[in-house]
Design a protein around this nucleic acid. Structure first.
Lengths: 210, 210
DNA sequence: ACCTGAACACCGTTCAAGT
DNA sequence: ACCTGAACACCGTTCAAGT
């Protein structure tokens, strides 16, 4: 039998773990787990509530609707991706090497977190409607932009619109990741890894601007 | 009042337009219309049946499930895209010009048929499970592959794995189209059109292999 | 303030029954 | 052979009612 608990421990009672706790947090945790387990297809608000131990109506106290909860999951994804890019950016000096590393890291994070990635770029969440989400995406994008600007200031890159180059590079890595995740590269019998697909193209693009 | 009809005209009777006709065809037509009207989000098998004038259960005589019908819509999309690529390929001779035109045409078709494109590459339909769909996609991809092979045989392109180059180019155009459709380019304040984003990168990639 | 229970509208899917 | 009608399980969402 469970040991007696003082009133201060009420929130940790096995019978009612979250009802007095941080339900919002519990829901996002459960949502992230559900997404990585079942993918975005099997994602159900009812199931998330079930896992958090609350009724199906409870989430509406904390999120406007299902999209809103998914947007929160997507935001967490962009934060993680941001960290992964910063990690990859450590110690790089030369522009080409730096951009290739960032590209590889982007694709690698995406394919190893494909379910999160699908939520981040899927049609279920209208990204423009969630300012926090847009900001999180922007910060991740900023790592790429900074690498380009650094190369430009160092004279290694000759480019009039850094955002345009960043857009081309982003298109490339997003495309490679998406086609790999969707199984389309395999269906087209392309045996090269999406990381390498991106890396060789990045090399060509950077050299063209050198 | 409607004019009398002979028994042979029964199928055109206003009260029962499709019940004796080609329901399968009527359903794919209605599905395509619904997708282009509401997008893949609002796509409902029940609504498709409603538009075709049949009960919600009727589609199951012709399609295994909702995914199967969507796969058929996706297949039609790949056929259209294939045609658009063939059109763009007419009269091109020089490799670089040819690949840039194909890239522009791909992105342009995608963004002007964004709802079809989302079905073609969305998570609702597991493409690998539909051989006809895979073949249709392969044929469209083949236009790109042929352009690369032609350039290689003409000595204009120096590339050991044509499928790898094709994969990089596909990643680029798919990424540019997807980011544009999802509103992510706008959110990131990238003002360059996705067609141009792709075109400049393609030029760089082809030149690197020249 | 936060959560439950019940309700509503709607969907995907199945199946016995009609023609 | 092809379609209907009714049914089932399940969802997203709302709201009055409980604590």
């Amino acid at each position: 039998m469970p040991s007696r608990q003082s009133p201060a421990d009420k929130r940790r009672s096995p019978a009612a773990p979250y009802h007095h706790g941080d339900l919002r947090r519990a829901l996002t945790d459960a949502a992230l787990m559900l997404v990585t387990e079942q993918g975005p297809k099997g994602f159900t608000l009812t199931e998330v509530a079930r896992r958090a131990g609350v009724s199906a109506a409870a989430p509406y106290r904390h999120f406007a609707d299902k999209s809103h909860l998914l947007a929160t999951v997507a935001e967490l994804g962009f934060r993680q991706l941001h960290e992964a890019l910063l990690d990859a950016d450590r110690g790089s000096v030369e522009s080409r090497e730096r951009l290739v590393r960032l590209g590889r890291a982007y694709v690698h994070w995406a394919v190893t977190h494909h379910d999160s990635y699908l939520v981040m770029f899927g049609i279920e969440v209208e990204r423009g409607a969630y300012p926090d989400l847009v900001r999180a995406a922007e910060r991740a994008f900023g790592v790429l932009l900074e690498a380009i600007n650094a190369g430009r200031e160092a004279g290694a890159l000759r480019v009039d619109d850094p955002r345009a180059l960043a857009g081309s590079l982003w298109s490339l890595v997003h495309g490679a990741a998406s086609l790999d995740i969707g199984g389309d590269l395999r269906n087209a019998r392309i045996s090269t890894s999406p990381e390498t697909l991106a890396a060789t193209a990045i090399t060509a693009m950077v050299d063209a601007a050198a």
